[in-house]
């Protein structure tokens, strides 16, 4: 705060509350171009013919081979199956994770019980654990359960998340008034009833944000599905994409066609929900 102690502040007409100049917008346009370019490219390349990309990659105009190339993706890997699996995994995980996190979050925020604080501290600490490092025993556990190469192996470990519990506790803490909980109790409502009829409606917006992020994270998950699933029996979108790229002859048109189809579902989600996604990231920050 040394600044404030300067002896004689030069008198200035008014602090110019900066209206941003052309330079700022130019910078932003540059940043935007950099963020969009790889996506644009992944949609342009597949529209061209495979021999054409050898000539010059700088040709950025679309060609007319899009459907042909997408067809080749579906011929090479079972992309429908991969889409279906990714859909099953992501939606099951999202629904269960949000539900279980809301239950726990509600209990931590609004129900008195012995050991509550200690247990919640445990949750916060475990949120920082790099649980991915336990995948060797986890794989062996899946082997013993007979779950290897089945979707269960990806779904079940992802059903709960410490971060989600933390998030929902915060939500319940802010959005559910104690008076309502007490009033429902006096009216003879059971705890489960209070959770369902009082807490859930109140935290719906936060639960929706959590659901959105859980879905995206699960959809994009790569390493664990790569390890525990069998790409020929139970591919997900991500592992199918990676197996497109593992052929001996690199076929970039094919790979990028796959990338484009793989990106499409989330891109649509993003276009529909970008406002909520931005708000979600920024909200998580303030609380984080």
């Amino acid at each position: 705060m040394a600044l404030a102690l300067r002896p004689a502040p030069r008198p200035r007409p008014r602090p110019r509350t900066e209206r941003s100049g052309a330079l700022v917008y130019a910078t932003l346009v540059g940043v935007m171009a950099a963020s969009l370019f790889p996506l644009y490219y992944s949609f342009v390349l597949p529209t061209r013919d495979n021999s054409a990309i050898g000539d010059s990659a700088l040709t950025l105009t679309p060609g007319g081979n899009l459907f042909h190339n997408i067809q080749r993706v579906y011929d090479t890997v079972d992309f429908w199956l991969a889409l279906r699996n990714s859909m099953i995994i992501s939606s099951t995980v999202t629904v269960c994770c949000v539900f279980l996190a809301s239950l726990a979050g509600f209990a931590f925020a609004k129900l008195p019980f012995r050991g509550r604080n200690a247990l919640f501290v445990t949750v916060v600490i475990t949120a920082m654990l790099p649980t991915q490092l336990g995948m060797i025993p986890l794989y062996m556990l899946m082997g013993e359960l007979g779950w290897i190469a089945t979707l269960k192996a990806v779904i079940v470990p992802a059903l709960v998340s410490a971060f989600a519990v933390f998030w929902m506790r915060q939500a319940c803490d802010e959005a559910v008034p104690y008076e309502l909980v007490e009033a429902a109790r006096v009216d003879g409502c059971s705890t489960l009833g209070i959770f369902w009829h009082v807490a859930m409606p109140a935290v719906r917006p936060q639960a929706a944000v959590l659901a959105m992020f859980t879905f995206m994270a699960t959809w994009n998950d790569f390493m664990w599905p790569l390890i525990v699933l069998d790409p020929s029996v139970t591919p997900t979108v991500q592992t199918a994409l990676s197996s497109l790229a593992s052929g001996y002859a690199l076929d970039y048109t094919l790979i990028l066609s796959g990338a484009a189809i793989g990106v499409l579902p989330l891109l649509v989600v993003f276009l529909l929900l970008s406002k909520q996604i931005v708000a979600g990231v920024m909200q998580g920050a303030v609380k984080g």
Binding site: L39, N220, Q238, L241, A245, V263, L266
Partner: peptide, 9 residues
């Protein structure tokens, strides 16, 4: 938001 696999490819 975009999948890391697609992006890396």
């Amino acid at each position: 938001v975009i999948s890391v696999v697609a992006v890396s490819l």
